[in-house]
Amino acid sequence: MADKDPELSIIIPVFNEQNAIWPFLTTMQNALSELHETIEYVFVDDGSTDATVQEIRSRMDSDLQIKLLVLSRNFGKDSALAAGLMHASGRAAIPIDVDLQDSPNVIPEMVTKWHAGAKVVNAKRVDRKNDSPLKRQSARLYYRIFNAMAEYPIPPDVGDFRLIDRQVIDILNTMPEKARFNKDLFSWVGFESAEVIFDRQARQTGRTKWSFWKLWNFGLDGLFGASTVPLRLWSYLGFCLAIASFIYAVYVLIRTVLFGIDTPGYASTLIIILFFGGLNMLSVGILGEYVGRIYREVRDRPLYIIQQTYESREEK
C-alpha cells in the first residue's frame, strides 16, 4: 500500500441520516483522539432522499479525511457495506452504524488487539436490553437455528461492528455473492480473531430502517445462503414419509385380504390429502428459495452502482 494511504478506514453505510452525521463525527473524533493511526471515514450513501449527502459534503472542509460514495438507489445495508470495503484504503477497516449504538470507545481496544496479531476483532454486545422482548427472543432463536444449520457458525450478539485486517478485506472483495450476509462471510474466511465486549446504547438520533419484513427476508438470505441443510432435512423427511407410506400400504393390503374392504372414510382421506399437499407446497417453497438465489447469481448484475464519489477537498 502507498505511504499516503490511511491506516484505519471507518466504514459508515447511511440512509436518510442527515441529523446523525455531525453527532457521529464529533463523537468519533473524541473517541479516537488518542490513536496514532491516520484515519479515513468512508461514508456510503445508500440512496438517501433527504439531505444526508449535502450534510456529509459540508463536513469535508474540516481536517477529517472523508470519502463519500453515493449509490444510485437503495441497495441494502450489506451491499453498501460491500461498496465501503471495496473502496476502503486503510490497512484495516471498521464498519460502524452512524446511530452511535455501537460504541466508538471500544475502537482503541480493537486496534490494540489488531496490533497484537488478530486479523478480525469482533465487538460483542453485553446484552440486548435496548431491544424489545420480541426482538431479543427472536434474535436468540435465530442464532441458535443458524448455527445449528450453518457449516461455519457465527458468534451470537456480534453485528457488523468489528475490525477487519487488510488481508481479510482483500479476500472479502473477491467474493461475488449477490445475496450478501456479511456476518456469515466474516465467519467463513477464518483467520485469527479476538473479541471485545461493549454495552450497546440506545439509538441517539432518527429511527431504525429495519422493519420486521426486512429483518425476516434478511434472515432468510443468511440462512439459505450459508447452508443447504434445509434441503437435506427435507430429503430426510421425504424419505421417512415414503417409508411410512409403504408400511401403511402393506398394512392396508394385508387387512383387505384378511378382512375385506371397509367403507372408506371421508375425514381420514381428506386429512391425508391436505397433509401431503401441504408438505408438497412447503417443499416446493424451499426449493424456490434456492432456485431464486441461483437465478440472482446467474444474472450476475452488479451488487451496487456508484453514482458519484466525493473526497475531502476533491470531487470526482
Rank of each mutant, 00 (worst) to 15 (best):
P6H: 07
I10R: 05
Q18H: 12
T26C: 06
A31I: 04
H36P: 00
Y41W: 10
V44E: 00
D46R: 03
T52F: 04
Q54V: 11
E55I: 06
L68C: 08
V70Q: 10
N74R: 15
G76F: 04
K77L: 11
K77H: 02
L81D: 01
R91A: 15
V98A: 01
D99K: 01
S103A: 14
P104S: 09
V111Q: 03
A116N: 06
G117I: 04
V121E: 05
N122W: 11
P133C: 06
Q137R: 10
A139I: 08
Y143S: 07
E151C: 03
Y152R: 02
Y152I: 13
P156C: 08
G159I: 03
D165R: 04
V168H: 05
D170F: 12
I171P: 00
T174D: 11
E177R: 08
R180P: 00
D184Y: 13
G190R: 03
F191K: 06
S193G: 02
S193Q: 12
V196A: 10
I197F: 10
R200D: 05
Q201P: 02
T205L: 10
G206Q: 02
R207H: 07
R207T: 14
W210N: 05
W210D: 01
F212D: 10
W213P: 00
W216N: 11
N217L: 15
D221V: 11
G222D: 06
G222A: 11
L223H: 04
A226W: 02
A226G: 02
V229P: 00
V229C: 01
P230R: 08
W234P: 00
W234S: 07
L241Y: 07
L241M: 14
V252I: 13
V257T: 06
P264R: 14
S268M: 11
F276E: 02
G277W: 07
G277S: 01
L279K: 01
L279S: 06
N280W: 13
S283G: 07
I286Y: 02
E289W: 12
Y295N: 10
L303N: 12
I305E: 09
I306F: 10
